[in-house]
Design a binder for these strands. Structure first.
Lengths: 105, 105
DNA sequence: CTAAAGTGCAACCGGACGGTTGCTCTTTGA
DNA sequence: TCAAAGAGCAACCGTCCGGTTGCACTTTAG
């Protein structure tokens, strides 16, 4: 299941911060990203690999640097799962509400 | 950050399946859940503990059994994060964000 | 009263994870 | 041309995770 990798990727705060940075539409390199974070460039590269595993990020080699950009489509899959489960929950609440209305009348 | 625990909880397929089961509104015990899964009762208990850490599940002790029920509210937090970062990318995610804002108001 | 059911706690195991250091390779710019 | 920049690969370390077994405790049912 690809949604596994998406939720796993989003579970790490460093990775979420990276996604937030990329959300503006900017492309970034591992070294550039590491300059703004308290971790090593290699650690950043590992996080970016996890995001790439979740298809949340695209890579493009330009000369000696690798530029990463966001692909938000897998986010839709995760959101869809949440919305589905939540819909059943809301349906249950709707049922409970109708029951209470009937009993109070 | 509580959203850490939510995404981490949803990253495991067994845990997502449990949430789907609970989404119907039913309450369940660790033993009852283990009967339908290919894992031990103790493993189920650990998964339920992870869901409880994410506030996705409520516990209620009744006699000798512990009954678990779903609390979908933290799902809204996760969905809201996704909708925020993905709003510029996907109009559907923007719609989800507006929906969540309306429901929380 | 006693045995079974349901739970909780603790220890253990293999593997994945976050992070580091060290090295090599390619590309670029002065 | 040659050193610096950017990246990739590999090994290592401590910790967490999913899962198991074993045991003790409480509650229920016959």
């Amino acid at each position: 299941m690809p949604v596994d990798a998406v939720f796993a990727a989003l579970a790490d705060p460093t990775r979420r911060r990276m996604v937030e940075t990329l959300a503006g539409g900017s492309t970034v390199t591992a070294s550039g990203l590491a300059a703004e974070l308290p971790i090593t460039r290699q650690a950043v590269a590992k996080h970016l690999a996890a995001l790439r595993r979740a298809r949340l990020v695209n890579t493009k080699r330009v000369g000696r640097e690798t530029r990463y950009s966001l692909d938000a489509e897998p986010l839709g899959d995760a959101a869809r799962w949440i919305a589905t489960v939540g819909a059943e929950w809301d349906e249950r609440l709707a049922d409970l509400g109708r029951l209470l209305d009937r009993q109070s009348a």
